[in-house]
Write a protein that binds this DNA or RNA. Structure first.
Length: 916
DNA sequence: GCAAGGTC
């Protein structure tokens, strides 16, 4: 890396401001030129620099965050193009979206001119991922680029100069971890969102939605746990039963004032006991001072300001929403008044010139004199700030970067937020407040009471941080051993109160602790709850769930799933960490996680009745036709060949069976009856290239495993145009959804143009497709029938002699096991032997279920449902767990059963099937 | 029309 002729180096930062700042630092603003790129926000800076002795012509530009997005391939983009479960393996692609194409072109053009590429993306996992997006675009344009990564944690001269002299290689593992996160988020989010939206939106009257056809009931691994926090607190309040307690209070008036003594026992819930103690005090009411303690107390200023802290404080002090706070902060940042507002860091680098920042504030009419005192050595007000232990290695804590006494274009909130940032900064480089505290303890008939007083000796940082206060209170002087008769001695009652609804600051705290979202996105998740009608916020910034939010959480809760709890995200986070340090492989984590979530999705879908039940508590059923997972009208399959005027659409009848019927009904009665064994069907965008007249859109079918022969696949992309041999055979074997053909008006019968009549005549006249014998169809084939009976019913496995059933989900035999949990000890259950399946059913529920599929499935979580919650809003809200689970750390966790394998004896974080 | 993560 030395000597030689000048080379051209393309430098790319994550955002325009960093490109500008680093270019300014490296060029020392000497010979710095700037020109436009193709994107109006991302300028290109040019200057000369020497890296390790190598003369370089530096071109410095930027992206704006991620350059690429992850999406499903087109065939899967439309909601009805596929079964949502397919989204767990549908191909995905990374591409540069329309609004980033300008940036891409700039990168390509500049990369072609350069020999080196230096990546100045933020030094976090997302930054590393963006680095590889930039690498992909640039190397596509210039395969000979030399790739380097600059590591820096703050835009400070020395650090930037050091960073460029010690370039490293980008870290693929960090980028891999983000790839995992993106793909999992996309697949889980899209599958569950489509599923629950299509299931519920048309089935209930959702009066709050002005356009309920476009209403989306989204699910996301961050938004749902956020909703979960809101609902859980709401339930806690609902279930709170006030309890009366008793306490003894004592006061003493003297010449110096009044002292209020608190009973050191605190609250007592036993009235008799409290009365006895009180009577003892009253009978012998002499107080003896047993302790007088005087000590200096310090109240420390806050740590340097991180994003979450800024949001929490703006909510507390000004009642600003976190989303609005971030908008205002972004404005102030863009205008150069405050530093980058999205940071986890709450400690300043030793290299930060804190004094200069304070100096800039000296001229302010309100806090300027405080800034002057801070800089005055003699005043002793300065103190180097103590950090809170968080450092994202990418940005410093939020601090003022430019003085302002207020700008004409600022709103009140701009003024407030700038003031908060400045006062917070000045506070955290200040000495703590000092108080002198006196604690006096007395003994009355063996009962101890204490009183305390405080005198503020030096306010220090509290002088500038007007948002905090530290109350002073005086008490009279007491001496050890002194005796007096209390002025009052009372037995007072009180009642326990429920906790308050979660405030925005509380919610941010919950999310932060559970690792839900990032500093830059937490406010988005909160806003999403409001936008989706899942929660509301009152004037005190406190959140309540809406009926919709509560119903959704209740539905999943009744299934026994923890999808609304933060554990899923926490596990994903730990897996991402493992990928980023190389202890797990990206492909393995993806495969394992998606396999588990797919099983969970399939199970949630089997238990969709729970979601329905929960919704029915709060909402009226809609009387729209064709509800459930089909939309009301149905998707067009082809033009009707009979009337040649209307479209044929896929429909689900109230009995659950599918058909493709002409929209011209009743004038046109053309219909194609589909096999009765279909669980789900969705029209895709694929067109059959055999059948005519076209287009005939293919239908994605999912058959019920138990109702079709095992040699047929449950997933089938089929055509109703007449070319589909498999579909024809399944109609024969299973019959159609039309149970009594003769009762159906002759829809299209006799018209050879109708594909349905073609099938029917074939099946009526042909030989059995199973045994090839004439005289019966495979519907009535004796061998086939007996096989179906044996798979449909419980019984001994003739091969092994074990009791078994075929799995309802995947067809693999289930083994009979015995539960060993507190509430279900000895109870038998079947569980699927396949590692890839989590089917589980109680044996007794099968015996009681009259052989019905849905009945047997429904029992899966019947023991977990809590009848006390079934009274609408009046539910008690107590979540009585069937068992107490133990986490990996040994802490008990309330819950019901493992969402991974369905086993009630453990929780997912210690599930052996997770492959951790 | 779905997620969450960057950023303008």
């Amino acid at each position: 890396m030395s000597g030689g002729r000048t080379i051209r180096v393309l430098n790319v930062a994550e955002k325009p401001s960093v490109a500008k700042a680093v270019a300014g630092i490296l060029s020392r603003s000497q010979g710095l030129r700037v020109r436009e790129g193709r994107s109006r926000y991302n300028k290109i800076f040019e200057f000369n620099y020497t890296i390790s002795g190598q003369p370089c012509q530096m071109l410095f530009t930027s992206v704006t965050g991620h350059l690429m997005e992850l999406e499903f391939e087109d065939r899967y983009r439309k909601w009805h193009s596929c079964d949502p479960v397919d989204l767990y393996h549908a191909p995905v692609r990374k591409f540069v979206p329309e609004d980033k194409l300008d940036i891409k072109r700039t990168l390509e053009e500049e990369a072609r001119k350069c020999q080196w590429l230096v990546l100045w993306l933020d030094c976090d996992r997302e930054g590393e991922n963006i680095a590889f997006e930039v690498v992909e675009v640039c190397t596509e344009a210039n395969r000979h680029l030399n790739i380097w990564r600059a590591r820096f944690s703050a835009l400070i001269d020395r650090e930037i100069h050091e960073s460029v002299q010690s370039l490293v290689q980008p870290n693929k593992l960090f980028a891999d971890a983000v790839d995992v996160r993106q793909e999992i988020d996309l697949r889980i989010g899209a599958s569950f969102t489509r599923f629950q939206t299509m299931l519920l939106r048309d089935a209930f009257v959702l009066e709050f939605a002005t356009d309920d056809r476009n209403l989306v009931l989204s699910y996301g691994p961050c938004q749902f746990p956020t909703l979960g926090f809101v609902v859980e607190r709401y339930w806690e309040i609902q279930s709170h039963e006030p309890e009366e307690f008793w306490t003894i209070n004592c006061t003493h008036n003297s010449d110096e004032g009044i002292a209020t003594f608190n009973w050191m026992h605190g609250h007592m819930f036993d009235y008799t006991c409290a009365v006895i103690l009180y009577e003892m005090c009253v009978q012998e009411p002499i107080a003896t001072v047993t302790k007088v303690r005087q000590q200096e107390k310090l109240k420390y200023p806050p740590h340097p300001l991180s994003t979450i802290e800024l949001e929490k404080r703006a909510s507390r002090y000004f009642r600003m929403s976190s989303e609005h706070t971030m908008k205002v902060a972004e404005d102030l940042y863009q205008a150069g008044f405050i530093s980058y507002p999205r940071t986890e860091t709450d400690c300043f680098s030793e290299r930060t010139d804190l004094h200069t920042i304070v100096q800039e504030q000296q001229g302010h009419p309100v806090w300027g004199s405080y800034a002057q005192r801070l800089l005055d050595h003699g005043a002793g007000l300065w103190r180097n700030p103590t950090g809170g232990g968080h450092d994202d290695k990418a940005h410093p804590p939020i601090h003022p970067t430019r003085f302002s006494a207020g700008e004409s274009g600022w709103s009140q909130d701009h003024h407030r937020l700038y003031e908060l940032v400045v006062r917070h900064f000045l506070a955290c480089v200040s000495q703590p407040a000092v108080g002198a505290e006196t604690i006096v303890e007395i003994d009355v008939a063996g009962e101890l009471f204490s009183a305390s007083g405080r005198v503020i000796i030096a306010k220090n940082y509290l002088d500038v941080y007007r948002f905090e206060s530290w109350g002073g209170s005086m008490i009279p002087t007491y001496t050890f051993g002194q005796q007096f008769i209390p002025t009052t001695l009372t037995l007072d009652s009180g009642v326990t109160r429920p906790p308050p609804l979660l405030s925005e600051a509380d919610l941010l705290t919950c999310m932060d602790k559970a690792g839900i979202g990032t500093d830059a996105t937490m406010h988005d998740h909160i806003k999403k709850l409001l936008d989706r009608f899942y929660a509301t916020k009152d004037l005190n910034t406190r959140f309540s769930p809406t009926s919709l939010g509560e119903a959704l959480v209740m539905g999943y809760d009744d299934m026994g799933y923890e999808l609304w709890k933060p554990y899923l995200r926490a596990m994903m986070e730990s897996d991402m960490k493992a990928v980023s340090i190389g202890s797990k492989r990206k492909a393995d984590v993806l495969a394992t996680c998606l396999q588990q979530m797919k099983a969970c999705f399939l199970d949630a879908r089997l238990n969709k009745a729970k979601l329905f039940e929960a919704m029915a508590i709060f909402f009226e059923r809609s009387n729209r036709a064709g509800v459930d997972e089909q939309h009301a009208v149905g998707d067009v399959v082809r033009r009707c060949g009979l009337c040649q005027e209307s479209d044929m659409v896929l429909r689900r009848k109230p009995d659950g069976n599918f058909m493709v019927g002409c929209l011209g009904f009743p004038q046109c009665r053309n219909v194609v009856w589909l096999p009765g064994s279909i669980a789900e069907a969705a029209v895709t965008t694929s067109v059959c290239n055999t059948c005519s007249p076209g287009p005939v859109f293919m239908i994605q079918f999912k058959f019920r495993r138990l109702e079709i022969p095992t040699n047929y696949n449950v997933d089938h992309l089929g055509c109703i145009g007449g070319c589909d041999e498999i579909l024809r055979q399944l109609v024969e074997i299973c019959g159609t959804g039309s149970r009594n053909l003769s009762s159906i008006p002759a829809r299209g019968r006799g018209h050879t143009t109708s594909s349905s009549s073609t099938w029917r005549s074939n099946s009526e006249q042909g030989a059995c497709t199973h045994c090839r014998q004439a005289g019966h169809s495979s519907n009535d084939c004796p061998s086939q029938a007996s096989r179906f009976r044996s798979t449909r019913s419980l019984g001994m496995n003739p091969q092994t002699g074990e009791s078994s059933i075929p799995c309802n989900t995947c067809g693999t035999p289930c083994v009979l096991r015995t539960a060993n949990t507190a509430n279900n000890k000895g109870r038998k259950f079947y569980s699927c032997q396949s590692q890839e399946c989590n089917f589980f059913v109680w044996e007794d529920s099968l015996n009681n279920a009259n052989g019905g599929r849905s009945a047997s499935r429904a029992t899966r979580s019947s023991s977990a449902s809590n009848p006390s919650r079934r009274g609408g809003r009046g539910h008690s809200g107590t979540h009585t767990p069937d068992v107490t689970f133990v986490s990996a750390t040994g802490d008990p966790i309330s819950g019901r059963r493992c969402y991974v394998c369905g086993d009630p004896s453990h929780f997912a974080n210690v599930c052996p099937n997770r492959g951790m």
